[in-house]
Design a binder for these strands. Structure first.
Length: 922
RNA sequence: GGGCGUAUAGCUCAGUGGUAGAGCACUAUGUUGACAUCGUAGGGGUCGCAAGUUCAAUCCUUGCUACGCCCACCA
C-alpha cells in the first residue's frame, strides 16, 4: 500500500477560493502563479489531515514513501502519459458540447454530472411558418414544446420526422423564430418522435446534446452553431446579432426575485399570442388555463458546484476511452482481474462497453497543466496579433519539455526563427500591447514565432489513474534534474533505507533493496480496495491507463469494492445534513482498535454499513476484555511465548485449546482469502471471548501448572498475532508487556494451522463445558443460589464415562460449585441434569443428580423436567415423522437419513430418561 | 426505460436445501480476587407476500410488494 493523496483539483481550488471570498478577495485578483502558491500553502497546512487520520487509525505503511499526485516525478508521468496518448491519437482536441459548470466556470466530465429530479414546467410555443406556407391542416404555425424556453433564442431549426404525414409538406421550408425573427429551416430527423408532443422539436444545437447531433446532421458545423451564453450562463449576443438587447446580460433563470431569460421569453411569447395555454381539468370538472404543464424534469447538476449544468460549445481535450477500455474489459472477462463482489462485473461491463469520450481538460488553475502549446507564425503586416484568427488554425504542439517544444515548433514552421513562448493567451496579447504600447507594431513581430501554453489543467482522475505505476517510479526513463531514480520513486532521500518487508504475506519474498526495480517488483499489485462509488472515476481509469502503459499488464489482480458508511438513519452522510461522523471523534471515544474492528466486522460483500455507535462500543469492550484476560495471564505466570509452534500438551484442556486455535486460524485464513473481513473478525472475536476467556481461562483457573502456563502463553500469542491486523494498538501493547520478544508483533510470523486437532480432547471438553452450563441452567430454573454448594451423585453408564468424569471432576466441582461428587447414584429424590452433548465416543453418557433435600423445590424441578421432556418428545416425534415417510428414506441423501436416525435415537433416549426422572419424583 | 441490491429477533446485521444465529437492547441473577466496559441463566423470529421445483424451501425458480443505489437523450 503506497500511501498518498491526490490533489483533488476542483474541491481544493474551491476551498481556497472560498477562503479568499471570506476576506472579500477573489482568485482573479492574483496571478495564476500567486494563486497556485496559495493553494500549495493551504495544502501544506491541511494536507496532513487525511494521512493524519490514517495514522490515528493505525494504518501501517512506509511513510517515507508517501506520495502526492503533484510531486515532480508524478507530474512527469502525467505529462508523458498525455503526450504519448496524443501521439498515438488517443487524446485529441475537439470543439463540441461539454457539460459546463457555470458556477465553477469549467468543463466537467459526464461522470461529474448528477441528474436530479426537479419540479419544472413544460411549455408549448407556436412557431409561425414563413413565406405563407401552411400545414396540410391549414395551420400557419408549428407547435413545439420545451422545458427550456430561454434556449429558443439560439434555435437554428425545427425538426420533424420524415415519416410524419402532418409535416411532410413543410420539410425544407422555414419558420420565423419569434422574438429574434430568425428564419430557420424545418428539417427531417429521426430524433423527432411523432408519438411525442406535437411531433415537432425545436433544435438548439449550441445548448442541447441531442440538438447538437441533429444540428450536425442538418449540416451545421460546430463553429457556426449559435452560442447565447457566456461562461456564467448569462445571455450574450449570438453571431447573427438577432437577440433583442433587453435579453443581453440576463441570467438564464429567475434569480434573486428578478426574472431571467426564461421568464422573459415566456412573457414575450405570451404577449405575442404564441404561447399555447395548458388546460387543467379539476375534479369538479372546472377547466382552468395555465401557461405551462407541471412536470418533473431530469435536470443535470454539477457534483461539486451544485448548479445546473449548461451544455456549452467549447474546445476541450478528450481521451478516446472506448479504445483504452478494450484491454480492461478483456482482463475482467478473462479473469486476469477479479472483481469482488462479482455482482459489480455487470455494472463494470455495462459502463466500459458504452463508454463515451472522456473530457479531461478543466478550466482551473490547480492541477497538472496540459502540455500543449498553440501558436501561429506572423507572416505579414496584415496578420496582426490582435486579430484572433489564430484561434481557427491554432496548431497544437503537445510535448514533454521545452527543448522538444522548440524542435517541434521550428520543424513545423520550417524556420529557425526566434521562438517566443507565452504563458497564456492573455500573456500573448498583453505582450503585444506592452511592447508596442497598445498599438500594433508589426516590425516587432515579423518573422518571430509566438506560441502560448494551454491554460487548462487535467481532470484529477487523469493523474490518479496512474497511481499503481507512477508511484513506483514509472516512467523508466533516466532521471532528470537530479530527481531520484525510479527505484526510489517519490521517497525523500531518507527513504533510501530498506523498505519494510511485506507484512503477513508469506509469499511476499524479501524486501526490495536500494536500486531494485520497484515497478517490476510491485506491478501488478495484488489487490486494490476501493469504494464502489469510484469504480468508474478511478478503478476503471486505473485499469485503462495501467494496462496501456505497462504492456497490457493489469494494475491489480483483484479489485475489492467495499460499501460506504452511512449515517445511523441510513442516509448518505453529508455536511449539509449534519449527519457526518468524524472518525477521529469516534477514535477519541472508543479507540482506533474498536473503530477498526467495527469496520472489519461490518464489511460483508460490499454492502453499505449503517453507522452504529453501540456496536463500536461493543468492540471497545472487546478490547477491554482482551486486556483483562492478559492481566489475568500475567498475574498467573503466563508470559510471552518464544515458540511459533504449539507446545506439547498432555492435559485435555490444553490439547483442546490448541485444537481450537488451529480451527480458528483456519477459519480466519479462509475468510481473509475470500476477502470476507466480517467472517474473519467474527472468528477471532468468538475465539477470544467465547472460547479463550469464557471457557479456557475458567477451566484452568486454580490449577495452572507448567504445561498450562506454556500453552496459555502460546495461545495468547496466537491471539495477539491474528488480532493485530484488526486491533494493532492493544495487541502491540500486550505483546511487549508480556515479556521479552525476538521481534515486534507487526512482523511476527502469521500462524500456520498445522498442529493436530485432538478429537478426544475436543469431545471431552465440550462435554465438560456443557455439563457446567447445564448445572447452572438447572440452578437458575430451580432458584438455587450460586452460593449453595450442591451435593451431587452420578451414574456413569460405562468405564469410559467414569474415566471422563474422574479426570475432570476438579474442574466440574469448582465451576459448577459442587461440594462433592458421589458414586453410585443414591436413593431418594433428586434433580436430574441431562447433558445434551452426550459423550459419543464410547460412553452412553453421564447423568448428574442433585440432592433435593432441603434445597430444591420439588414442584419446580417437576416443572423443569416436564418442560425438557416436552421439548425432547416433540423433537423425537418430528424426526420420527420424517423417518416414517418412505419418500424421505428413499430419496434423501444417506447422511441426512443417518443423522435423522441418530438424532431421533438421542432425543428418544433423553425423553425416556427425563420421563423416568419425573416418575421418580412421584 | 435499463441494470443492481436489500427485505431474517425490538435495533444493527450474519447464515444454511434438513424447521434459524451474533452483537446490542430486554428479563432474572451476582458465586469464582482478569474483567460490572463483567459473569451466569432466560424470553423473543409462520426468515416481506404468493405460487412453483423438491422427500424436504428462510435458502433454488417465477411473479408481486416495499425500500435503496447506479446508468440512460423523452423534446
Amino acid at each position: 500500500w503506497v500511501v498518498g493523496t491526490d490533489h483533488a483539483g476542483i474541491a481544493t481550488q474551491m476551498v481556497v477560493e472560498r477562503q479568499l471570498e471570506a476576506q472579500q478577495d477573489k482568485r482573479t485578483n492574483y496571478t495564476r502563479e500567486a494563486f497556485v502558491e496559495k493553494v500549495w500553502e493551504w495544502k501544506a497546512e491541511s494536507g496532513g489531515t487525511i494521512t493524519g487520520q490514517l495514522r490515528r487509525l493505525g494504518c501501517s505503511m512506509d511513510w517515507s514513501r508517501e506520495q502526492f499526485t503533484m510531486d515532480p516525478h508524478f507530474t512527469r508521468a502525467v505529462v508523458k502519459v498525455f503526450v504519448d496518448l496524443y501521439n498515438e491519437g488517443l487524446i485529441y482536441r475537439d470543439k463540441r458540447l461539454v457539460n459546463w459548470d457555470p458556477k465553477l466556470k469549467t468543463a466537467i466530465s459526464d461522470l461529474e454530472v448528477e441528474t436530479q429530479e426537479i419540479k419544472g414546467h413544460f411549455w408549448h410555443f407556436r412557431y409561425p411558418l414563413a413565406d405563407g406556407v401552411q400545414l396540410d391542416n391549414g395551420a400557419d404555425h408549428i407547435v413545439v414544446a420545451t422545458t427550456r424556453p430561454e434556449t429558443m433564442l439560439a434555435d437554428m431549426a425545427v425538426a420533424v420526422n420524415a415519416a410524419d404525414p402532418r409535416y411532410q409538406s413543410v420539410i425544407g421550408k422555414f419558420v420565423t423564430l419569434p422574438i429574434t425573427g430568425r428564419r430557420i429551416p424545418i428539417v427531417a430527423d429521426d430524433h423527432a418522435d411523432p408519438e411525442l408532443g406535437s411531433g415537432a422539436v425545436k433544435i438548439t444545437p449550441g445548448h442541447d446534446f441531442n440538438d447538437f447531433e441533429v444540428g450536425k446532421r442538418a449540416g451545421f458545423k460546430p463553429a457556426d452553431m449559435l452560442n447565447m451564453f457566456d461562461a456564467e450562463a448569462n445571455v450574450v449576443q449570438v453571431s447573427d446579432g438577432l437577440i433583442p438587447d433587453c435579453f443581453i446580460g440576463m441570467h438564464r433563470f429567475r434569480r434573486d426575485g428578478t426574472d431571467g431569460a426564461r421568464e422573459l421569453v415566456v412573457q414575450e411569447l405570451k404577449a405575442a399570442g404564441l404561447l399555447v395555454l395548458h388546460s387543467v381539468t379539476a375534479k369538479d370538472g372546472e377547466v382552468t388555463q395555465k401557461d405551462a404543464e407541471d412536470r418533473v424534469i431530469q435536470t443535470p447538476y454539477g457534483d461539486r458546484g451544485g448548479v445546473v449544468i449548461e451544455p456549452w460549445l467549447t474546445d476541450q481535450w478528450y481521451v478516446n476511452a472506448a479504445e483504452l477500455a478494450k484491454a480492461p474489459i478483456e482482463a475482467v472477462r478473462s479473469g486476469r482481474i477479479e472483481i469482488v463482489p462479482k455482482t459489480w462485473e455487470k455494472t463494470y461491463f455495462n459502463w466500459m462497453e458504452n463508454i463515451q469520450p472522456w473530457c479531461v481538460s478543466r478550466q482551473l488553475w490547480w492541477g497538472h497543466r496540459i502540455p500543449a502549446w498553440y501558436g501561429k507564425k506572423r507572416a505579414s503586416e496584415n496578420d496582426t496579433l490582435n486579430d484572433i484568427s489564430w484561434l481557427l488554425d491554432d496548431h497544437a504542439f503537445v510535448v514533454e519539455n521545452e527543448n522538444e517544444l522548440k524542435k517541434q515548433v521550428q520543424a513545423y514552421y520550417d524556420s529557425t526563427e526566434e521562438l517566443y513562448i507565452h504563458d497564456s493567451e492573455e500573456d500573448y496579447l498583453n505582450w503585444d500591447s506592452v511592447v508596442s504600447g497598445g498599438a500594433v507594431s508589426p516590425e516587432l513581430h515579423l518573422e518571430k514565432i509566438h506560441i502560448y501554453r494551454d491554460e487548462d489543467v487535467l481532470d484529477t482522475w487523469f493523474s490518479s489513474a496512474l497511481w499503481p505505476f507512477a508511484t513506483l517510479g514509472w516512467p523508466a526513463d533516466p532521471p532528470r534534474n537530479g530527481e531520484v531514480a525510479r527505484s526510489d520513486g517519490g521517497g525523500s532521500p531518507a527513504s533510501a533505507v530498506l523498505a519494510a518487508p511485506p507484512l503477513h504475506h508469506p509469499a511476499g519474498g524479501p524486501p526490495p533493496r536500494s536500486g531494485e526495480d520497484l515497478l517490476a517488483r510491485h506491478y501488478p499489485n495484488d489487490l486494490l480496495i476501493s469504494g464502489f462509488d469510484i469504480l468508474f472515476f478511478w478503478c476503471a481509469r486505473m485499469a485503462m491507463q495501467g494496462m496501456h502503459f505497462n504492456e497490457g499488464q493489469v494494475p491489480w489482480k483483484r479489485l475489492y469494492l467495499h460499501g460506504l458508511v452511512r449515517a445511523a438513519d441510513g442516509q448518505k452522510m453529508s455536511k449539509s445534513k449534519g449527519n457526518v461522523v468524524d472518525p477521529l471523534v469516534l477514535i477519541d471515544q472508543y479507540g482506533a482498535d474498536a473503530l477498526r474492528f467495527f469496520m472489519a466486522a461490518m464489511e460483508s460483500q460490499g454492502r453499505d454499513v449503517k453507522m452504529d455507535e453501540r456496536r463500536v462500543e461493543g468492540y471497545r469492550n472487546f478490547a477491554t476484555k482482551l486486556w483483562n484476560a492478559a492481566r489475568f495471564c500475567q498475574a498467573n505466570g503466563i508470559a510471552a511465548s518464544q515458540s511459533v509452534t504449539a507446545p506439547a500438551a498432555n492435559l485435555a484442556v490444553n490439547k483442546w485449546i490448541i485444537g481450537e486455535v488451529v480451527e480458528t486460524v483456519a477459519a480466519l485464513d479462509k475468510a481473509m482469502a475470500e476477502l470476507r473481513f466480517d467472517a474473519a473478525a467474527n472468528a477471532i472475536y468468538h475465539f477470544v471471548w467465547g472460547t479463550f476467556c469464557d471457557q479456557y481461562l475458567e477451566n484452568i483457573k486454580g490449577s495452572i501448572d507448567v504445561e498450562t502456563m506454556s500453552v496459555a502463553g502460546w495461545v495468547l500469542d496466537q491471539i495477539l498475532v491474528t488480532l493485530h491486523p484488526f486491533m494493532p494498538f492493544v495487541t502491540e501493547e500486550l505483546w511487549s508487556a508480556l515479556g521479552q520478544r525476538e521481534g515486534e508483533l507487526i512482523i511476527a510470523t502469521w500462524p500456520r494451522p498445522n498442529a493436530p486437532i485432538d478429537l478426544i480432547a475436543k469431545k471431552q471438553i465440550e462435554w465438560l463445558n456443557n455439563e457446567i452450563s447445564a448445572v447452572w441452567a438447572a440452578r437458575s430454573d430451580l432458584g438455587i443460589p450460586p452460593s449453595t454448594r450442591l451435593e451431587c451423585w452420578v451414574n456413569p453408564e460405562s468405564d469410559f464415562d467414569l474415566e471422563l468424569l474422574t479426570s475432570h471432576s476438579d474442574i466440574l466441582m469448582r465451576r459448577a460449585r459442587l461440594s462433592v461428587i458421589n458414586l453410585p447414584s443414591p436413593n431418594g429424590q433428586h434433580a436430574t441434569i441431562e447433558n445434551k452433548k452426550t459423550f459419543a465416543l464410547g460412553g452412553g453418557g453421564v447423568t448428574l443428580l442433585f440432592s433435593l433435600e432441603g434445597v430444591i423445590d420439588i414442584a419446580a424441578e417437576k416443572a423443569r423436567l416436564a418442560k425438557a421432556l416436552e421439548v425432547s418428545t416433540k423433537e423425537a416425534k418430528s424426526l420420527a415423522g420424517r423417518l416414517s415417510n418412505p419418500a424421505f428414506v428413499e430419496k434423501a441423501k444417506p447422511e441426512a437419513v443417518d443423522k435423522a436416525r441418530a438424532d431421533h435415537a438421542a432425543h428418544a433416549a433423553e425423553a425416556e430418561r427425563l420421563a423416568a426422572a419425573l416418575a421418580r419424583l412421584g
